Simulated assay, not measured.
Amino acid sequence: MDGYADVTVVEGDITQQRVDAVVNAANRRMRGGGGVDGAIHAAGGPEVPADCVRRFPDGLATGDAGWTTAGAMPAQWVIHVVGPNYSAGERDRGLLESCYRRALEVADELGAGTVAFPLVSAGIYGWPREDAIACAIETLRTTPTQVREARLVAYGRRAYDEIAAALG
C-alpha cells in the first residue's frame, strides 16, 4: 500500500550511499557527463554506461526517469532523471517536479525502499538553489509511493544546512 516517503538529508557522496537506488541527474543523451552524472558513471564502472546505451539508445526526455544497474556502487540500481536546464531557458518547474515523481514511480516498479537523491538541476543546469530544494522536498513529501526513505544527499556543508533548514 502506498504512503509517503520519509524525506531525510545527509551530507556526503551520493555514489557511496547504502540504499536500494541512487538517483542520477543525467543529460538527455544518457551517456555520462559532469557533476553527479560523471561521478555516478565513474563509481559504477563500465556496467553503468553500457546499460545506459542498451536500455536508452535514444536517450531520455527532460522530466522522465529510467533505471540501470548501479555497477560497482553499494546501491543496486541507478534511477536516471533528466532535469530541466534552467541556464538554457528550460524553466518549467513542472519538469523538475516530474523528475522526482518519476524517480519514485521507477523506484516503486523496482521495489526500492530507500532512494538517495541529488538536488536535480541545481548544479551546472543552474536551477535557483532555494527553489530546487523546495521543489525536491515538496514533491517527495506529497507523491504517494512505497519508498520508505527519500534521502537528499547534500554535497557540502552549505547545501546540507540549507536542506536541513527547509526540512524543518
Score class of each variant (00 low, 15 high):
E97N: 04
G126K: 04
D13R: 13
I133L: 03
D161N: 15
W67E: 05
V78S: 01
V78T: 07
W67A: 13
F117H: 14
V115M: 03
G123M: 03
G89Q: 03
R102I: 06
E138A: 14
H80Y: 03
P144W: 00
N24E: 09
A39R: 07
A75L: 10
D2L: 15
R151C: 11
T139L: 08
I124E: 01
R93W: 06
E138T: 14
G168Y: 05
I40E: 00
L152Q: 01
D6Q: 15
L96R: 00
D37H: 12
R18I: 13
A154T: 12
A70L: 05
L167S: 04
D131P: 05
T142C: 01
A21D: 02
V81L: 09
G156C: 13
S121F: 11
G113P: 04
V82H: 03
R28Q: 13
I133S: 10
Y100M: 06
T142S: 15
V81F: 04
M73E: 06
A25G: 09
V153Q: 07
R18V: 14
D37M: 02
A107Y: 04
T69M: 10
R18S: 13
P144N: 11
R93S: 07
T69R: 12
P49K: 03
V106K: 07
T139F: 14
L95S: 05
A150K: 12
R148Y: 13
T139E: 05
M30N: 11
D161L: 15
A75F: 12
G45D: 00
V53K: 13
V153W: 08
R18K: 15
Y86V: 09
I163V: 15
G32C: 01
I124P: 06
I163R: 00
G83H: 11
E105L: 10
A164R: 15
